[in-house]
Design a protein around this nucleic acid. Sequence first.
DNA 1: AGTTTCCAATTGAACGTTCATTCGGGTGCA
DNA 2: TGCACCCGAATGAACGTTCAATTGGAAACT
Lengths: 195, 195
Amino acid sequence: MNVQLETSGVKKIAIFESTLLLVKEHGFHGTPMSRIAKNAGVAAGTIYHYFDSKDTLIKELYIYVKNTLAEAILRNHDPEKPYDRGFLDFWVSQCTFFIEHPAYLYFLEQYINSPYAKQFHGADSELFKEKIKPIFTYGIENGLIRKMDYELLGPIIHGSIVAAAKLHLSGHHDFTRERLYGMAQVIWDGIKTQS
Amino acid sequence: MNVQLETSGVKKIAIFESTLLLVKEHGFHGTPMSRIAKNAGVAAGTIYHYFDSKDTLIKELYIYVKNTLAEAILRNHDPEKPYDRGFLDFWVSQCTFFIEHPAYLYFLEQYINSPYAKQFHGADSELFKEKIKPIFTYGIENGLIRKMDYELLGPIIHGSIVAAAKLHLSGHHDFTRERLYGMAQVIWDGIKTQS
DNA sequence: AGTTTCCAATTGAACGTTCATTCGGGTGCA
DNA sequence: TGCACCCGAATGAACGTTCAATTGGAAACT
């Protein structure tokens, strides 16, 4: 199931989840290693058994989060279905994932815009790069999606998903699965090759 | 010109611009007050003559940035022109502003996703709330834009502008004014009421 | 099976640094 | 003289990281 053959990794995951929760609540700087440790039920020094520094902890956490997200998306992805249906599924399953895992969403949003992302530029989830991104480059190259750079298309789609998830999480709206598919359709109409 | 009747405010602006540059480069945590001071050409203590704390400095800086952005947008906005043309102008002038002021862009992006934004929820540019936002709510209410929440529409448009500006700033692309209007048109096609 | 060896895992107090903020004092203008 | 502005060394708290000491359990040996 896992890429690495880890004996357990249970503490590592505990540290990840603890960091995720605290970063969501207080941001990167607002979460000292001491509190990460306490929250994860380990001693401060233990973290340094698994990670070289706070920076590498954050970087590895980012990849962990992206991998978890990619797994969730791929689980709902059926390559047999028509391309547009695939896009809708992608949009909805990612949005659902964020709604169900708010800490993952807020961590990602903070990371992407932090200096970490520039510092560790290139370090990303292999799963994402190899399985998800190709779906979109395929769509662009085969004339199913409007001709534009992936670097432009990506943030636009991402932005719509994040906006919807945040809106739901704010509590003001409660999006049903149908509503989500409706929103995905709006985005698809804007993205697809215009007839 | 300014809302506040400041005698000069030149030091205050210097502190703002210094913070902007350093935050872009090193993030919130990576920019100590001492370096903000040195970079602005003032003493550390002087900052506390103008701001209560680092937190309020950041908060006021956010409003300063949003105001400056709003001014730039309104300067290029002509209410006489048709609505769709107004949207294109809005999109392009905001994108151009970000391209010309990268530090403003990166500061905003970091702020929006930081705990500051939640902490100071509601504190925003009056200019923006009273002049820019109404343009969009008008468009939605009068059936010119697809019926959706402003909280959903806003981030989508914002996302596309930011993505384009970042792509330009990355150096890989050099968008002419015509190219920018082309991209704005793509977004408009997705946003407008479908015929 | 019992004993010894060994090392990864874990602890938390201690260290040194960095940082936001304070404060006592200085300057120049009204 | 008073007041607004400004300085920068000093302060003390908070933080990331280190490390000597402890544990526990698996292998190696008798």
